[in-house]
Design a protein around this nucleic acid. Structure first.
Length: 556
RNA sequence: GUCCGGUUCGUCUAGGGGUUAGGACACCGCCCUUUCACGGCGGCAACACGGGUUCAAAUCCCGUACCGGAUACCA
């Protein structure tokens, strides 16, 4: 039998990270077993369901790469079938009409109200004491015929128990005495969750139900419905919950945006990285490995490897550096610096475009950024990817762009960094980081005259070739007489200059770094000079903007 | 209240009768270095508690504590 699993969110908000993990595990399970991964939108609560939420869920799933294999099922479209099932059980005597007037909704917190009521009714706990449970068929029909509203409840047997083998939690048993005669159909004719789920799972021919642990008790109720309906229940597996740092279930209501998948997309996370992180929250392959591709996850996933204890998703709302889980941030950085460039570049393009930093030249010559980039996959001596070797990288071209991204990605954490920290590579309009100014400029006042002097030196040294000529011959290796603005040549000039001034190389380099990039961190300065290019280097070394900031700070 | 489940470094986790209890993130130190990262090396840091079984318990059993979930004419 083909494995068929489903992800069944209710569209009452954005896609929750916990729900996303359920979707992921379902997906992995399906893929591993050559089965189908289906999506059902549980929109039976019309009051709370919104189309916008449905869109958001679909978007989120698409972003993280979990698209359903068949058409999406909307539960509300099946309401008639659910109703029919309820009436069938009524006819068969497996359910009964409950004429008890619907209780007015309490104004208190629903959960608290439920708890209070449960506590209060502790003494005479008999879930089979509904006065209408034993009503004769004639009387029941008569009252219904006269228009009296009723709900339909399942007639749970007096004695016995439900039991099932959970794929994660093992054997689960629950005496009927613990399960009430659950309502299948509301007095307004609306089918209820448990009935709807069972009917739809049957109709969708679901073989394995993998969902959150919060459904563990529902499973017993649903098994009762399966039995009443004379259908063999599917296999069940429940996943541990994802908790917030306080130890409470991670919820939309109290934890806010941190639980929404879109938050991570918008914050510059790589879908593969997020998926990788999520997979390791509550599941382990039992080996010392952290980075898993989708293929590896599909191959290694198993329900046995899923934990029974909940995991905490760490975050600190007021700490910008740790606003979300440390490991997630690390993993994203790891993906950014090691993933194939042809996959990363299109994402960087989107990020730059959104910030008006993108130039069409980067895409020129009809070569898509996603085209294979030779040598990128080569691994360096330490087994990590080496930087890409691209010749002909004149400023502003596609090759320049690829090379630049490859160089700067080495110390970025999210895609956002390309437009913030990396802004100076793509635009003249960038800010100077105060700490960088303090550390690299303010302490060395001489730099205010030295750096423009260095610009003059560059201009002289590299004057032999005009900008146009430099472009034309940029591919010619240095050392053949032509002096190009390349790392080796720049190094010679800067070293001579440094010696002449009797200072340390670092002072010059870091001063230049601040002026050229606005920040105190980045790739080797020789690389930075070359990437920024001669023209922009001269301009920025001579600019007084940052120095004005230094002066301003002094007068304060 | 009742039912169900859980508890290994701060966090994610490996281990499941004999281990110096392993890895990863975070943190700290050293090396590399023009900065910051990366990388390398090292450090800090855990079996909730109490009984039992056993030559031997983090591991098996029982209890306690604590935490979580569920308990609805919500999903």
């Amino acid at each position: 039998m083909t494995i068929r699993v489903r992800f069944a969110p209710s569209p009452t908000g954005y896609l929750h990270v916990g729900a996303t993990r359920s979707a992921l595990f379902n997906y992995l399970y399906a893929r591993q077993n050559g089965g189908k991964f289906l999506l059902r939108i549980e929109d039976t609560d019309l009051a709370r369901s919104t189309d916008e939420s449905t869109r958001s869920i679909l978007e989120g799933l698409a972003w993280i790469g979990l698209e359903p294999d068949e058409e999406i099922v909307f539960q509300s479209a099946n309401a008639d079938k659910h109703r029919a099932a309820a009436f069938r059980l009524l006819d068969e005597g497996k359910a009964y009409r409950d004429f008890t007037p619907k209780a007015a909704p309490s104004d208190a917190n629903v959960k608290d109200a439920i708890k209070d009521r449960a506590r209060a009714s502790q003494g005479e706990k008999d879930l089979r004491n509904n006065p209408y449970r034993g009503l004769s068929k004639e009387e029941s029909d008569a009252r219904a015929g006269s228009g009296e509203p009723f709900a339909i409840r399942l007639k749970v047997p007096e004695t016995g128990k439900t039991s099932f083998e959970d794929g994660v939690f093992g054997l689960q048993e629950r005496g009927y005495a613990e399960t009430e005669d659950l309502v299948l159909l509301r007095s307004d004719g609306h089918p209820l969750y448990n009935l709807a789920v069972v009917c739809d799972d049957i109709e969708m021919r679901i073989t394995d139900v993998i969902r959150g642990q919060d459904h563990l008790t529902n499973t017993h109720k649903q098994i009762l419905i399966y039995e009443a309906l004379d259908v063999q229940p599917p296999k069940f597996a429940h996943l541990p919950l994802i908790l917030a740092p306080g130890g409470k279930k991670l919820s939309k209501r109290i934890h806010g945006e941190i639980v929404s998948l879109t938050t991570y997309r918008d914050a510059g996370f790589i879908p593969d990285a997020f998926r990788n992180f999520l997979a390791l929250l509550g599941w382990s392959a039992g080996e010392e490995k952290e980075i898993y591709s989708l293929e590896e996850l599909i191959e290694k996933f198993s329900l046995e490897g899923v934990h029974r204890s909940s995991a905490i998703f760490n975050y600190e709302p007021n700490n910008p550096k740790r606003w979300t889980d440390d490991k997630l941030i690390w993993m994203n950085a790891e993906y950014i610096r090691t993933m194939p460039l042809e996959q990363l570049l299109p994402m960087v393009k989107i990020e730059l475009k959104a910030n008006k930093l993108w130039r069409e030249e980067y895409d020129e010559e009809g070569e898509a950024l996603a085209a294979a980039i030779p040598s990128t996959a080569d691994l360096g001596p330490d087994g990590r990817p080496s930087t890409v070797a691209i010749e002909n990288r004149e400023t502003g071209t596609r090759n320049w762009f690829i090379y630049t991204v490859d160089v700067i990605r080495q110390r970025f954490f999210t895609l956002k960094d390309f437009s913030s920290q990396g802004r100076a590579y793509f635009s003249e309009d960038f800010d100077f980081d105060q700490a960088a100014i303090e550390k690299n400029l303010k302490k060395f006042p001489d730099l205010q005259t030295w750096l423009p002097e260095l610009a003059d030196r560059f201009e002289t040294a590299f004057a032999e070739t005009s900008q146009a000529e430099t472009r034309a011959v940029a591919s010619v290796p240095a050392g053949n007489g032509a002096i190009h603005f390349t790392e080796a040549n720049i190094e010679t000039v800067v070293k001579a200059f440094t010696e002449e001034k009797g200072t340390k190389l670092g002072v010059i380099m870091n001063g230049a770094r601040t002026l050229l990039t606005g920040v105190a961190v980045g790739p080797s300065m020789l690389t930075v000079f070359e990437i920024i290019g001669l023209e922009r280097t001269l301009m920025r070394l001579r600019s007084q903007v940052a120095w004005n900031a230094v002066a301003e700070a002094r007068t304060k």
